[in-house]
Simulated assay, not measured.
Amino acid sequence: MARYGKEHKLATRQRIIETAGRRLKRDGIDGSGVAALMADAGLTNGAFYAHFESKEDLVATAVADQLRDQRERLAAAPPGRAGLDQIIRAYLSPEHRDSREEGCPSAALLDEIGRCAEPTKQVYTDSVLAFIDDIAARLAPHDPRSARVATLGVYALMVGTLQLSRALADQELADEVLEQGIRNAMALLDDAPH
């Protein structure tokens, strides 16, 4: 019975993390209270502290989980430059832009993460650097560290491009911004150390 209890608790925790990740990306950190986050998971407020020390703990965990999902999608892409091109095109697509809840946590939450406490910023930094290092390893397989800063630059361009496209009321212009972002990211990759 105790084993079932532990497995059930882990499954419940994961459900909270996944539903919180979607809510946080949709409504932001400040716009997502504990009550709403728990209701999304089908639980009461009282259950929250059985799984997390604080809302900040949940935010850090959910963002890390979201970035881990991005890394898994990256790993599934074809190897080398072809895979990077596919990833950039998918990231800077109208579909990704229009599905904030299922999209990138950086594009949805970066400004708010910047205002979080240091432990959350550190979890974000560690998670995003793991993602960046996976991309850098595709660019410079013999020396991934040499491509880290250039890869961070490409990622920053992609995140900012997606954010700007989401904010524009003119749909045609928003689509053009995505297309230009793809061209800019590809050009930066061409200039990155290999």
Score class of each variant (00 low, 15 high):
153 G>R: 08
129 L>Y: 13
7 E>D: 14
114 G>M: 11
89 R>F: 02
150 A>E: 09
5 G>P: 00
51 H>L: 04
12 T>E: 13
190 D>T: 09
91 Y>W: 15
96 H>Q: 13
15 R>E: 13
137 A>R: 04
12 T>L: 13
177 V>F: 01
77 A>G: 00
101 E>Q: 13
119 P>H: 11
31 G>E: 03
32 S>C: 05
136 A>D: 11
26 R>P: 01
99 S>M: 05
93 S>C: 02
42 G>S: 07
60 A>Q: 11
128 V>C: 11
99 S>F: 02
79 P>E: 15
176 E>R: 15
144 P>A: 07
3 R>D: 12
14 Q>E: 15
93 S>A: 08
37 L>E: 02
16 I>E: 03
102 E>F: 03
59 V>L: 02
31 G>I: 03
17 I>C: 03
24 L>K: 02
164 L>D: 04
77 A>I: 00
70 Q>R: 06
39 A>T: 08
49 Y>R: 07
8 H>Y: 09
159 V>H: 10
39 A>F: 01
178 L>E: 00
78 P>I: 11
119 P>W: 05
103 G>T: 05
178 L>R: 00
172 E>F: 04
138 R>P: 02
71 R>H: 07
128 V>W: 11
166 R>H: 08
146 S>Q: 13
139 L>G: 05
81 R>A: 10
150 A>D: 14
51 H>Y: 15
118 E>H: 15
153 G>A: 09
169 A>K: 12
48 F>M: 12
173 L>T: 13
